[in-house]
Nucleic acid binder design. Structure first.
Lengths: 137, 137
DNA sequence: CACTTAGTTTAGAATTATTATAAAGTAGTT
DNA sequence: AACTACTTTATAATAATTCTAAACTAAGTG
């Protein structure tokens, strides 16, 4: 079972974090899934703590998520509600936004004909497309 | 001068707002310019109130900006710092993000080869591209 | 033009997301 | 087993935004 957790522990260690129980639980919760996971820290905290007798503190959620994000294991993005969202899919990809709901779009589903040059002295770090949806009436 | 303010007053009226002095001043400040203006409510408040003896309250800035945005005279967008930014350029366009700085990209500078279909029951409202920049080293 | 009313402004309180703090606890080395 | 640096936690602090209620004003009415 230590073996089973190795992958989650490794992510923590390479993010500069000691693999404490709380952190390993968070890492497992985030990365032990087949499908991409989109979440806010508040949502993560609620869904994990709901099932636990010993709750993990808010600060630990924030710290852990930040470190994982800085190490590149999570991707941050923002909607128009002043809350940070995180995505376990760190490969370059795009999003549908539908009333606060987020759906991944695989990178190869969007290709460009024309892209602008970066201003002098700068280079392009990444290109992200957001497709906003509305209901068919 | 009432005539001169007509355009700013009309934007307020068609946003469902009575053209009070405060609101007309805000509307003029926002729209009486040649170039696109990007701002947060806090920035708007500071730059306008700096020059005034009679300050406009925070709530009035928020109310006015919201109404103008809902009426479609302002466009809202978010960076990764949990603050709402607004853009007086409401035409479909894209952005460079460079360390918190925002630069407009004209719509025709980006064209697509391929775009995904909207999920069933949905249609595409708009497509926005963000190109993140970093320094050349 | 005075009157009335619904909409507005404002200061300040409340809320939400997030970050900081400092005391008590624990991982990992010696 | 002991030590030390890193963690956890509850709580306070901060920042952006929204709410509230009392004082104020635009604009329609007679």
């Amino acid at each position: 079972m230590n073996n089973k957790n190795k992958i989650f522990i490794d992510k923590l260690r390479s993010s500069g974090l000691r693999p404490t129980n709380q952190r390993v639980d968070i890492s497992r919760f985030l990365f032990n899934r087949k499908k991409t996971f989109h979440f806010t820290v508040e949502q993560l905290k609620n869904s994990m703590n709901l099932k636990r007798s010993k709750k993990i503190s808010t600060a630990t959620f924030y710290n852990t998520v930040h470190a994982l994000k800085s190490a590149g294991y999570l991707k941050e993005f923002s909607l128009e509600n002043n809350t940070s969202y995180y995505d376990t899919n760190i490969t370059s990809h795009h999003h549908f936004f539908d009333n606060g709901k987020v759906i991944d779009i695989k990178s190869d589903k969007i290709t460009f004909n024309k892209l602008p040059e970066a201003p002098k002295g700068k280079k392009i770090k990444n290109v992200e497309v957001v497709i906003r949806l509305e209901n068919n009436n």
